[in-house]
Design a protein around this nucleic acid. Structure first.
Length: 298
DNA sequence: CCTCTATGGCGAA
DNA sequence: TCGCCCTAGAGGC
C-alpha cells in the first residue's frame, strides 16, 4: 500500500490517536527493544510524513523514523475496548497509557517495515534534506523538481520514482500520471516542456490528496470507466487504474493493448497509442528487449 | 495447502 | 546488481 498518500494518512491517524498522550512502547518481535525501552512511558507530541517517510515525535526531540518499504504496515486502532496480544512479527507497538483522555484506549502495530529507528532532530533534518518536493505538502516547491528533470537525460519514468527529485510518488502514481498526461515513460526529462510538468504536478497534488482521503489510488476519470465508455467490464480488471497492472488488457481510452516493461528495476505500464514515443521509431519494441545502461527496457 | 507477486529502498558485494 | 525485509493478498492445485 505504501506510496506517499499512505504515509500522510498514517501520520494523520497516529496524530489523532496518540498526540499529547503518554504511551507504552514495546517491541514484541524484539528488533526495536532497546529503543522501545528508551521511549516507554514518554509522551507523543505528534506525527508527520514527508514522501514515504514517517516521523512519530516524542518529547525530548526524539523521533521514531519509519519507512514501510514494500511490505510494511502500521495499523492504528483508535478507541478500542481491549488491546489484543500481538499477532505475527510486531516490531513496534504503541499503546496509550492512562484512562483520563476522552479518546479512550488506542494502540498501533508496526510490521514488516524496512526502517524503524530512533533519531534526533539532526538526523531527521538530514533525511528530509535528501527528499525532493512532496506533492502532499502545501509548502513544496515543484520548481526544485523541474530544475532536475529539465536538466536530466534520464527517462521521466525514472525521475518520477527518484525520491531526491520528487518525494512520495511510487510505481502506481508514476504509471498513472504519465498515462493521464500522454507521456511515454522513456521520454528523457530534458525533452519535457515546463507546461507539461506544471500540469503533471497539479495533477499529482490532486490525485494524491484524493488518495489520502479515500485510502486508495483511483486515477480513472469518470468518463473513462468501462461503463461510461461502453466497454464490457472485465473480471480480471481491479479498476481504478488506467494502465498499472493491466498488461495485455485493452486501454480504457483507446482500446489498444496495454504494454509492460521494466524501468529501473520496477514494472512500468503504458499505452502505446495514448503515450506515443517521443521519437516515433525509438522505442517501439517488444517487452522483452534488453535493458539500456540505465536499466530501461520497455 | 503451496507459490507467486507487490504501491521500496537499504546495504553487502 | 542482488538479497533481504519476512507481510498479505491472489491464484493454482
Amino acid at each position: 500500500m505504501p506510496e506517499g498518500h499512505t504515509l500522510r494518512r498514517l501520520a494523520d491517524d497516529l496524530g489523532a490517536a496518540f498526540a499529547g498522550r503518554v504511551v507504552r512502547v514495546s517491541s514484541p518481535q524484539g528488533r526495536f527493544s532497546a529503543d522501545a525501552e528508551q521511549l516507554d512511558g514518554s509522551r507523543v507530541l505528534g506525527a508527520d510524513s514527508a514522501g514515504k517517510h514517517l516521523f512519530v515525535e516524542f518529547d525530548g526531540e526524539r523521533f521514531v523514523h519509519v519507512h514501510l518499504g514494500l511490505i510494511g504496515s502500521f495499523d492504528v486502532h483508535a478507541g478500542v475496548e481491549h488491546v489484543p496480544d500481538p499477532v505475527g512479527q510486531v516490531r513496534l507497538r504503541l499503546v496509550t497509557a492512562g484512562s483520563d483522555d476522552p479518546r479512550g484506549t488506542s494502540y498501533a502495530d508496526l510490521r514488516g517495515a524496512i526502517l524503524c529507528d530512533l533519531v534526533g532532530p539532526a538526523r531527521r533534518t538530514e533525511i528530509l534534506g535528501r527528499l525532493g518536493p512532496d506533492p502532499l505538502r502545501p509548502d513544496a516547491d515543484p520548481g526544485l523538481a523541474w530544475r532536475r528533470i529539465s536538466r536530466s537525460h534520464r527517462a521521466i519514468g525514472d525521475l518520477l520514482m527518484d525520491q531526491k527529485v520528487l518525494a512520495g510518488v511510487g510505481n502506481v502514481y508514476r504509471a498513472e500520471v504519465l498515462f493521464r498526461h500522454r507521456i511515454h515513460p522513456l521520454r528523457p526529462g530534458n525533452t519535457l516542456r515546463i507546461g507539461q510538468w506544471r500540469a503533471m504536478w497539479a495533477d499529482l497534488v490532486e490525485l494524491m490528496g484524493e488518495g489520502v482521503r479515500s485510502g486508495r489510488i483511483d486515477t480513472v476519470r469518470p468518463e473513462h470507466t468501462p461503463e461510461a465508455m461502453g466497454r464490457p467490464p472485465r473480471k480480471d480488471d481491479h479498476g481504478g487504474d488506467y494502465v498499472y497492472r493491466r498488461t495485455a488488457m485493452p486501454c480504457l481510452v483507446c482500446g489498444s493493448t496495454v504494454r509492460t516493461g521494466e524501468l529501473v528495476g520496477r514494472n512500468i505500464f503504458w499505452c502505446p497509442r495514448c503515450q506515443p514515443t517521443f521519437r516515433s521509431r525509438a522505442v517501439e519494441s517488444s517487452p522483452k528487449d534488453t535493458a539500456t545502461s540505465r536499466g530501461a527496457r520497455p
